[in-house]
Nucleic acid binder design. Structure first.
Lengths: 204, 204
DNA sequence: AGCCAAGTTGACCGCAGGGTCAACTTGCCG
DNA sequence: CGGCAAGTTGACCCTGCGGTCAACTTGGCT
């Protein structure tokens, strides 16, 4: 790869990181090219597709943050605090960085590394949940799918209320509903992972 | 108004009701015209704008359903059952009819009658909440704004999970978090109505 | 320095959406 | 039944998106 191509790729990665972070993963590619100061043709030449760019720019950063949240949660002595802190933290990440909100929704199935991050995060969330449930501090009928659906639903509100922290209230209401002592029977069976995916992607 | 214009307006209203109900209020106007079997020019000629069409087609129906839900809630002897049933009912309306989901989000500020429905619904929700709080069965720090934000966040999930009823789980978790006995202090002050509106519209 | 492959550019295509309007058709009244 | 206003049509404009590619520029090797 020639030096100028290297430079352009770097500029594009930087611009993409900025715009993804500001406005989510669906920002127009031409706008990324514009901010990077190169032609959009160059972007297509160097990356080929939005998914490839996402994989290069977002996947590692998202993985680092989400993995760290899971690690912190599991390292917490109190399983409930670990779980509650995890939910707050992931919501906060979504509030601060719109790109992270798009990770969990699986709206970019061709970004393979990102899908890997998504899968790992789902497994981590399940572990955090299970630990709390084994400790008897989290209602046993709450599933990983429930949590992901909650996070996905909150994402837009978290983004829009990043400054005021209003999203924290929704998390608090949820958490108060997840303690075993307060649990009432649920009106519907838990969604399968496939159902969850279909609901998230909006597809059939 | 000439007879053929009358007929076309009726066909357009029917087609709009169908498509709004199937796919929400942002359905392309040209598609409505296509389903009605008329030119899109006729649609613009007869209604002038999407908002006007919405006001004619959706506002009354939405008002009827939402008002009925509120009436039922207030007529319920048990304030908690009234409140809980109201939340379920509104979510169900959103699940069954995507157009209703778009009503609460205030995404069509120029549809004045629809905004009126929105305001009345907000007031009704506040009344349902207040009654339950006065009876001591609903935590006192839960506000109408909180409920609207919840409903707006759930709307896409309710739509996508209309068949399976998975959305009911989210409602159930919320309700279990709203009983006074289980309430923990909230991590953020309640949003003002203005904040809520800004969050819903995504705008500044 | 000279050359050529590597890289860049921006015009261009297709598509979809909102919106307009001159030319046409047609309901309806005298 | 004739004629005109009312109404309809679809071609057309604009914007903005993803994506392609021939023509140009330039890095860097010999």
């Amino acid at each position: 790869m020639r030096a100028d191509a290297q430079r352009n790729a770097t500029k594009l990665r930087e611009a993409a990181a900025e715009l993804f972070g500001e406005r989510g993963l669906q920002v127009p590619l031409k706008e990324i090219a514009r901010r990077a100061g190169v032609s959009h043709g160059t972007l297509y030449n160097l990356f080929g597709s939005r998914e490839a760019l996402i994989d290069e720019v977002v996947a590692d950063l998202a993985a680092a943050r989400l993995d760290e949240a899971a690690r912190t949660a599991l390292a917490c002595d109190d399983p409930w605090s670990g779980f509650a802190g995890y939910v707050y933290r992931v919501c906060e990440l979504q509030a601060v960085d719109p790109a992270l909100g798009d990770v969990l929704t699986r709206r970019f199935p061709d970004a393979s590394r990102l899908m890997g991050v998504c899968d790992r995060t789902f497994a981590a969330a399940a572990a955090v949940i299970e630990r709390a449930q084994r400790a008897g501090v989290l209602r046993p009928d709450f599933t990983g799918e429930d949590l992901v659906l909650f996070l996905a639903a909150q994402a837009p509100i978290a983004r829009a209320s990043a400054g005021s922290g209003v999203w924290k209230r929704a998390v608090a209401f949820l958490l108060d509903g997840l303690r075993p002592a307060t649990a009432h029977p649920l009106p519907a069976p838990p969604p399968t992972t496939g159902q969850m995916t279909r609901i998230l992607t909006g597809g059939p």
